[in-house]
Every structure is written in structure tokens, then in C-alpha cells.
């Protein structure tokens, strides 16, 4: 039925056109396209404003939901931030594998020098650094703070060390090189620092996967929280949905306020999550600075910056929107006037 009274109600009576001539487009044609676009935009703006108003109209309930979302998102975000900080802190360490060759204590300095030269000539070796027992002692005294105790010793207990930097980091080549070094008569023991580097990389990878898995799981949790919250909203506004459907609201029109509500929950949840992480970082920055100072490093904790703020709010808003969409798709169809 697309017959309408355009100007005055009497128009219908005088209109003698057969009704069948008017197609389903008659209603749409009534208002110009520009007007429709404006009213569509207007409705979006109105719904965005209304969802905000509704969010703050029940601050306790809304805040609680947002906080649940925030906590769920703050956990993986904090883990991620911790990981980034850890990686940054250890970035100063040499990532290159290195082989420490501890020599027998009775080997003379000149022999060691020629052994080092011999090693430098090997194709597998990139560089060799020689640390004489005296150098080692001086360094140890400086870094350990045990200078007084050590000066009391009558002979230097430290062996000479050659730090061998391999040209090739493939583990088979490294093992081969380590074996060659072990076989030398001058060698007491050989330590492949590779193990540490590998362990560090694996630890980092473990942390990364853990935080990714946790993020995935908790994102799912956030989704469910939003789905449930929006489902309750829909239930609470059942009467209103019935009435607007009866007066000709499209599904899109009915969905809109709920989608904006989901967006709202997500956004504020994300914002709160960022604040939580930032507050946590601020609390920890003192102890971390102290700790790194005690290791002789000037490292300071990096807080969640603007990228975390954008990522968390946008990601959470998107999750909220998705959750609202799921709730709306499942529940609004079922509310039809009967």
C-alpha cells in the first residue's frame, strides 16, 4: 500500500489514479534523496548521542560492565607491554652467539697470542678477543665490588679467556667450531653462549604466544560480556522495539541504538584498560628503575603510549560493536508485533 495523502487529506479523495499504478517506490520518492541522507546522518548522530546518554544515565551498571571489559583487556595489554619492555631491556645485550674459551692456567701469554692468531685464520671464526688473567681480574674487581678482598690474594686465580665470535651462526657450524676448540691442548673448557641467546629468544617467544593466547581468550570474554549486556538492553526495550516496528521501523533502524551502545561499552572499556595499564606502569617504574640501576643499566620502564591508547580503544570499540551485532542479530528478529 503506497497510497499517501500528500498535501491535504482531501487529496486522496480527489485522486482518481488507479492505485495499481503506484509502485513500491512511492514512499521513498516522497522525500528527496538529500533529505533522506540528512535524516539518516541525523539519526546516526542522534543514536550515538543517545547511547552515550544511556551509558551515563546508569553510571554504576555501565561502569561495572566497562570495568569488566577493561580488566579483561588490561591483562593481555600489560603482558604485551611487559614483553616489549623486557625485549628492550635485553636489546643492549649482544644478540650474537659467542664462544668463551677458558685456557689452562699454566699457558704462557705468548702461546696464547699465537693460538689466538691461529684461530683468527680459521674460516669459521670472525673475530677473537683475548682477555688476559690480569684484564679479567681488573674487570672483576671493578664490577663485583670485591676489590679489597681480591687484592689480598697472592696470585691471580683467573684463567686467560679467548672470546671467539663465529662467522656462521648455524648451530651445526657452531657445534663443529666448539668441538675444534675443545680438542685443542690449551683448552680447559669451552662455553657456548649460544645457549643463553637461544633461551632468551625462546622465553620471549613463549611470552609472546602466551600473551596472544590470553588476548584471544579474553577478547572472547569481552565479546560475551557485551553480547549479554546488549541482550539485556534489548529485553528492557522490548516494548519500544515492538512499537517502532509497528509504525514502520526497518531492522536497521531498530539495530542502530544497540550497535552504538556496544561501541560505547567497548570504547570506555578500552579507555579504562589503558588507564589501568598506565597506572600499573607508573607504579612499577620506580622499582624497575632501581632494579636496572643495580645491574648497572640506566633502563627505565616504558609506559603504554599513545599507540596503546589508540589500539586499546579502537580494538575494544570494535569488539563492542561486534558483540552488539551478535546480540542484535540473535534477539531483535525474535521481537515482532503479534
Amino acid at each position: 500500500m503506497n497510497q499517501r495523502i500528500h498535501n491535504s487529506p482531501r487529496a486522496t479523495r480527489t485522486a482518481q489514479r488507479p492505485p495499481a499504478e503506484r509502485g513500491p517506490g512511492a514512499v521513498a520518492a516522497r522525500t528527496s534523496l538529500g533529505d533522506r541522507w540528512h535524516s539518516w546522518l541525523g539519526h546516526h548522530r542522534e543514536m550515538a548521542g543517545e547511547s552515550l546518554r544511556r551509558f551515563f544515565a546508569t553510571p554504576l551498571a555501565s561502569g561495572m560492565t566497562a570495568l569488566v571489559i577493561a580488566i579483561a583487556l588490561a591483562l593481555p595489554a600489560a603482558l604485551q607491554l611487559g614483553l616489549v619492555n623486557f625485549q628492550r631491556a635485553v636489546a643492549g645485550w649482544d644478540g650474537q652467539p659467542q664462544i668463551s674459551v677458558f685456557l689452562h692456567k699454566d699457558v704462557r701469554d705468548s702461546v696464547v697470542q699465537s693460538f689466538a692468531d691461529e684461530l683468527r685464520a680459521k674460516p669459521l671464526v670472525a673475530d677473537v678477543t683475548y682477555i688476559s688473567p690480569d684484564d679479567a681480574l681488573a674487570e672483576f674487581q671493578q664490577s663485583s665490588g670485591l676489590a679489597d678482598a681480591l687484592t689480598g690474594l697472592d696470585s691471580n686465580p683467573l684463567p686467560a679467556v679467548l672470546l671467539v665470535r663465529p662467522r656462521n651462526t648455524a648451530s651445526a657450524d657452531l657445534e663443529a667450531l666448539a668441538q675444534q676448540l675443545r680438542d685443542s691442548a690449551l683448552t680447559d673448557s669451552v662455553v657456548l653462549d649460544m645457549a643463553w641467546v637461544q633461551r632468551l629468544a625462546q622465553l620471549t617467544e613463549l611470552g609472546r604466544r602466551l600473551s596472544a593466547g590470553l588476548a584471544l581468550l579474553l577478547a572472547l570474554g569481552v565479546l560475551l560480556v557485551v553480547v549479554n549486556t546488549i541482550r539485556l538492553h534489548i529485553e528492557n526495550r522490548r516494548e519500544e522495539i515492538l512499537v517502532v516496528k509497528l509504525v514502520g521501523a526497518t531492522d536497521a533502524f531498530v539495530r542502530r541504538p544497540f550497535l552504538y551502545s556496544g561501541l560505547c561499552y567497548g570504547f570506555f572499556g578500552g579507555l579504562l584498560a589503558w588507564l589501568l595499564v598506565a597506572a600499573g606502569a607508573a607504579l612499577l617504574s620506580g622499582p624497575v628503575a632501581g632494579l636496572s640501576a643495580s645491574y648497572g643499566s640506566g633502563y627505565t620502564l616504558h609506559g603504554p603510549g599513545i599507540s596503546y591508547l589508540l589500539g586499546l580503544t579502537a580494538g575494544a570499540a570494535l569488539l563492542g560493536l561486534l558483540g552488539a551485532w551478535v546480540a542484535v542479530a540473535r534477539h531483535i528478529k525474535a521481537i515482532e508485533p503479534r
Partner: peptide, 14 residues
């Protein structure tokens, strides 16, 4: 929905 916009509906419920 577009069809209903051309009707005036007075129902007791709703």
C-alpha cells in the same frame, strides 16, 4: 516496514 508507514495503526496492546 515501508508498507506499514502508509498505515495508521491503533492497537490496544503496543
Amino acid at each position: 516496514p515501508y508498507y506499514r508507514r502508509n498505515l495508521g495503526i491503533v492497537f490496544q496492546n503496543h
